[in-house]
Structure formats: C-alpha cells, structure tokens
Amino acid sequence: MGLHLNLLHEEIQQQRDRQRDPLKIGMMVLAGIGALLFLYYGWNAYRTIEIKSRFANVDREWTKIEPSVTAAQKRADELTGIIKTTRVLDQYIDSRFFWGPLLQKIARCIAPNAQLTSFQGALLEDNKSIGVSIEGVAAGREPRAVAEDLRQMLLEQLGQSYSDVKIEFKTLEDLDTIVNISGSNMAMAHYALTITFNQNPPVKPAASPAKSKK
C-alpha cells in the first residue's frame, strides 16, 4: 500500500471554513428573507395603489354629485320646517275661539225686557275655556223670573254649540226703579251672570246598541 500524503490539507481546511462561514450563510439567509419581504411589500403596495385608484373614482363621483346632494338636503330641511310650521300654525288657527257666533247667540237670547249693559269675555286656560260675565237689567211683573228665563235661554243656546256650559248668577237684586214698557209699569231687577264654557262642541251621547232579535 502506497503512502498518500495530503499536502493541501490546510488549504482544503480553509476552503471548508470559508464555505461554512456563518456570516456568509447569515448574509445569504438575510438576503433571501429580504427578497421575500420585498416581494410581500410589492404585493401590498400594488393593492394599496389599486385601492387608491378605486377611491379616486369614488371621490370623483362624489365631488360630481355633492353640490346637488347638499342642495337637496338643505331643501328637504327647509321643506320639513315649512311643513311643521304650517301644521302648528294651522293648529293655532283651528283652536281659535270665534267671538262673532257667541255675540250672535247672546243677542238672540236677550228679550226686549232684559237689557244688557255690560259684557266682558276672556279666553282662559290656553284658549280652551272661555269666561264671560254679563250684566244688565230685567223688567217685568216678576223681574227675577225674567232674569232666570234669560239664564235658561243662554244655557240652552250655548249648550248647543259649546261644552261644559255653566251659567250662574253673580248677583240678582231688585231695583227700586219702575219702568214703563208698552204702557204698563214694571219692576226692575239688576242681574250679573257668570258664564264659563269650553269651546269644543258638546259630545253627543252614543247611540244605544240595537236590541238583538231573539
């Protein structure tokens, strides 16, 4: 067997060391990971650019439509305000109390021998109730009865149009004065009536249910 001498042992060892150099291997690994990361970054950048492009389209569309939308919103708000205001104003108008018909009813109730000297009326409680006080003189053989007739007449007439009608004598007193009506002397009485009622029409009683045939 021949003797084999490896004279290049050190050189080979150095070459092996160079090949197994951890720094070199590390740099290669780093370069590999760097390349992967770069690719991943590129993919993300592409997606971002694509999203930004879509956003630009949407934004362009919005910019085009925005003035008309803003105007429409403003107009809608304005119209809503007008509708609400008109509704409230209509409620205000509808809830008013009309004095003309009341004066007419009172005029119809006053007989020739029951003179009215004073009328005071006012809205009470948020326009729902009305308070009226009237004063006058009544003449007749029984002046108090004339005044009472007037009260009854008012009760009947006002009860047809208004609800919760209450009419009470505040004062009713005989006067010493004698008045001549149609040639006959009659005694007089001074009356003061207090009237309260609700302007809503009276509630009519519900019709009784029909009896079922047996």
């Binding site: 104003l89 205000y92 108008i93 008013r96 109390f97 009309f98 004095w99 003309g100 018909p101 004066l103 007419q104 005029a107 000297t117 004073s118 009328f119 005071q120 009326g121 006012a122 809205l123 326009n127």
Partner: peptide, 27 residues
C-alpha cells in the same frame, strides 16, 4: 252691537293669525 258682531266675525275670518283674547262691551 249688531255692527260690532259682524265686524268681529269679519275680523276673525280676515285675519286667521289673530285671536281675540278679551272683549269688553259697555253701554
């Protein structure tokens, strides 16, 4: 009285935003 009643009725019809809150009539 009669003219006043008519005038008040006309006023209430002509001015829907007007409400009579108090009315005093004395001879």
């Amino acid at each position: 009285y009669a003219t006043l009643g008519k005038a008040i009725a006309d006023l209430e019809n002509a001015e829907p935003l007007l409400t009579i809150t108090r009315l005093t009539i004395s001879t």
